[in-house]
Structure formats: C-alpha cells, structure tokens
C-alpha cells in the first residue's frame, strides 16, 4: 500500500514539475537565457488567484482565467520592457540572468508587502479539497486534477509545437533566430507569444501550489531551482526532456524521503544535477 501511495504522490509531483519545466523550457530554447523571473509569474498567478477567488469571492472559473491572463501578462511585459531591450543590445546571457533574478526578487518583495510573509492558502475552506480513494491509496482533489489534466495539456502543446504555424515559427527561432528572421518569421511577435504562454504555465503552477500547500513570497525562488534541475537533467534542447526530468526528480525525492529522511529532500535535486553535468552535460534527451 505504501508503495502505491508513494507512486501516486510521485506522479502528481512529476505532473506539477512537468508543467513548470515545459513553460520554462520554452523561453530557455527561444530566447536562450535562464529566466528566473519565471518564478515571479508563478507567484503572480498564485497570489492573483488568492485575491480573486478567496478574498473577493469571484467564481472559480473566472478567477482562474483572470489569474492565468495576469501571469501571462506579467511575463509578456517583462519581455517587452526589460528582456527585449537587453536582447536587442546583444547583452550576454549572464546579464539577462541577473536582470531576471532582480525582477524575481522585486516581485516577491512586493507580494510579501501586500500579502504578508506567512503562508497564503487559496482554498476558501481546506475541507473543500476533499480526498479521493484510488485503489487503496488517497489523493486530494488538486492532485487528481493534476494527474488527469496535465497529460492533456502536454499533448496539446506537443501538437501545437509540431503542427501549427506558431509551432513551426517557434522551432525555427529555437534553431537559429537570425536565419528565422531572414526568411520572414516575425521574431519579436513570436517571442512575445512565447513569453505570454510561458507565463500562463508558470501561473498554473502557482495556482496548483496555492491550493495544495500554500504560497509564500519566497516560493518563487524555491520552485525555480528544481525546475531548472529538471530541465537540465532531462535535456535543455528537448521539449520532452523537461518532462522526463520532472518525473526523475519527483521519483528521486520520494525515494529519498523513504530511505534517507525528509531533511535530505532539498539536497537531492542538486546531487542529481551535479552527477548529470559530469556524466552527460547535454542532458538525457537531445533535441
């Protein structure tokens, strides 16, 4: 029973990190820098959901749509006013990384001032998130939704990427943005769309976290580190790599708790990262 329960937990955590790694990988491959402000969009999504759904009692569906739009807009504006300017100046990726880190820090500080530094839960009543029995193990509603809904989301994205006009433009920019521009792909417009979509995925993660565990302003940074690890381990250049990495990470974390104890769980992602960088720096999957 314990094995089955932990397997289900590993799957739900894997789904959570898959969404985050998918969104983060989009920016990494197209704009080619480590965008830590992704954690900011995670927070914006979660806290907007808290504001609309719990404080202002807006209907669940409207709250979620508004929050996803808000977190997408956050990422879009960050590109428009900060990253596109730096990219046009051909700034080094280190500069972009530092700028995005600054944005993340500012975002979490502002959200901390507005909502306080204590944990913020989105659910109006914790008992609303009831549990479901799955063949002897239990999952709560947030986890069930993740396990059912995330695979659909992943395949929708895989389809958009392989078979639509936007997907082809995206892949062209990933391959070589200058050549893509030469053959007439609107680079700036495509990047704006990519940043928006990436932001909504981060916001979705933030909403899930707020329902399942509660948000604190430092969650943005806490969550971005395992996301980076998952992407690097799975393969930075591959769409499926981040998803594979997310599940490896989730399984490794559960096993660590069972065999070594809970205080090691924060260290595990980085041990995996170091081993991976030594053995296979390009990640498990290539493009």
């Amino acid at each position: 029973m314990i094995f089955w329960q932990l397997t289900l937990y590993a799957i739900s955590v894997g789904m959570f990190f898959s969404v985050l790694a998918m969104g983060w990988g989009l920016i990494l491959r197209s704009a080619k820098f480590f965008n830590l402000a992704y954690g900011g969009a995670f927070l914006v999504g979660g806290y907007m959901m808290f504001l609309f759904y719990r404080m202002w009692n807006v209907h669940f569906v409207f709250s979620i749509l508004l929050s996803l739009f808000g977190s997408g807009l956050y990422m879009l504006l960050s590109y428009k006013f900060i990253f596109s300017v730096l990219l046009r100046r051909k700034a080094k990726s280190l500069i972009l990384l530092i700028a995005s880190f600054g944005l993340l820090t500012a975002t979490s500080a502002i959200l901390g001032m507005i909502f306080g530094n204590q944990s913020t839960l989105i659910a109006r009543h914790l008992s609303d998130i009831y549990t479901v029995n799955v063949f002897g193990a239990v999952l709560n509603l947030a986890q069930v939704v993740a396990i059912v809904f995330v695979p659909v989301l992943i395949f929708v994205f895989a389809y958009i990427r392989s078979s639509t006009r936007f997907g082809r433009a995206m892949r062209a920019i990933e391959d070589d943005s200058e050549v893509a521009e030469l053959v007439g792909i609107p680079k700036d417009k495509t990047l704006l769309q990519i940043f928006f979509i990436s932001g909504t995925l981060a916001g979705l993660g933030g909403i899930a976290e707020g329902f399942d565990l509660g948000l604190i302003p430092t969650s943005g940074l806490i969550i971005i580190l395992p996301t980076i690890v998952a992407t690097v381990v799975g393969g930075m250049q591959s769409f499926w790599g981040g998803i594979l990495g997310a599940f490896i990470l989730a399984i490794a974390q559960q096993l660590t708790i069972v065999f070594f104890g809970g205080s090691w769980v924060q260290a595990v992602p980085f041990v995996i990262l170091i081993i991976m960088l030594l053995l296979r720096p390009q990640g498990i999957l290539k493009r």
Partner: peptide
C-alpha cells in the same frame, strides 16, 4: 523524521 523549515510537502513522511 524531520523536514526543512521552508518545506510544506510532508506527504511522503506522513505515508
């Protein structure tokens, strides 16, 4: 068992 101060996911510990 124990957990880090900023960790809130204690599901595996409780399992």
């Amino acid at each position: 068992d124990s957990f880090d101060p900023d960790v809130k996911n204690l599901k595996a510990q409780f399992t």
